[in-house]
Design a protein around this nucleic acid. Structure first.
Lengths: 197, 197
DNA sequence: GATGAAACTTGGGCACG
DNA sequence: CGTGCCCAAGTTTCATC
């Protein structure tokens, strides 16, 4: 399977912002032709990096619902069951399972009766405790920067297989394949910054 | 502004599953023609119900990153600042603010040094405490079932089978099962609003 | 790149409330 | 009369070569 490069990351970013953008517009942005962009997007889909094309829906606009975050503390033997059960619930927008087995659910409910809603979808005996936070607001971040997707050392361009080094330089998180590239980048940055002063 | 009906909900569901579906396919599913579907989608965008067209990206496939959930406990005077600051961070995938001012951040980080990462983006003095949970897995639910978008009357709670009435009250779109519930809601709203003045 | 095919948009006209 | 829909032509965009 072909590796990812900077161009793929740019395409991902552009699509994340607006998945309806014409291929020609993407092509101009990344310096390719529309067919080449098409090929890359197809490949990204095959690789499972693009999981699908979808819309962001403001569910709270649809009815008088309440967005909540629910922390579940399942009994250790039932973590998978609880995870599967909540994932099947209709009102769910996101599920997170911690390595400690705790489960956090992001849901938008038609009323605030969380207990009866939970009871309708899963066996409450498999949950030792739960905690509900009503949300004042929330954002799902769609704009993803190139560094957020960074896969290559920003200095030598080599792919960072595992490990790697990160450092915050000028407020930006950068990733390097090795400490020497990091040193080089930092000194280059400092030279540049000093020159500006 | 036009009201929402069952057809709009079907369109939302179809687009949520696959936003690249041709209008003709959607049109066949809901019994309309492609231009009519186009009109409705434009309207849903104007109303802010469709917030945008985007892709689902499997970020953990991109490199050996670690997904975490971070609970922040900001000092009460800095809640907005902290929320704004984390929203600007590159590695963020979601932010939630509870009515109690607590903030939960969903991020995918290149390493596990959360503290330095947080310090790079926000003033740690505005956070009294924070708690990190490394995630074993997580899902954002994209496929939304028909009932997931089902409408309930915001007054009497009855499910709205077909027809139904919507109105914009105080800038918010609300849905009712019948005009009488709408009247009741509107008068209740106006009483409430007058009381504030 | 260029071409054929498919999808989207536009404008006119009709039906319904 | 306004709103929403259909029909048909014109234009853009996409996939294949």
């Amino acid at each position: 399977m072909r590796d990812l490069d900077e161009t793929d990351l740019e395409i991902l970013e552009l699509l994340t912002e607006n998945a309806r953008r014409p291929y020609k517009e993407i092509a101009d942005n990344v310096g390719l032709t529309p067919p080449a962009v098409s090929d890359r997007i197809s490949r990204l889909e095959e690789q499972g990096i693009i999981q699908g094309f979808t819309i962001d829906v403001d569910r709270e606009k649809l009815r008088g619902e309440t967005a909540v975050l629910i922390e579940l503390d399942p009994v250790p033997t039932a973590v998978d069951d609880v995870y599967a059960a909540v994932t099947d619930l209709e009102e769910i927008e996101g599920v997170f399972e911690g390595v400690d087995g705790s489960i956090v659910v992001h849901a938008t409910l038609p009323d605030s009766n969380v207990r009866s809603w939970l009871a309708s979808g899963l066996n409450l005996e498999s949950v030792r405790n739960y905690d509900v936070t009503v949300l004042a607001r929330s954002d799902r971040i769609v704009g993803v920067s190139a560094t957020g997707f960074g896969l290559e050392c920003v200095v030598c361009g080599k792919e960072i297989v595992d490990g790697g080094v990160t450092a915050t330089v000028g407020g930006e998180l950068k990733t390097f394949c090795c400490p020497s590239c990091e040193d080089r980048y930092v000194s280059r940055y400092e030279t540049h910054r000093d020159a500006l002063e």
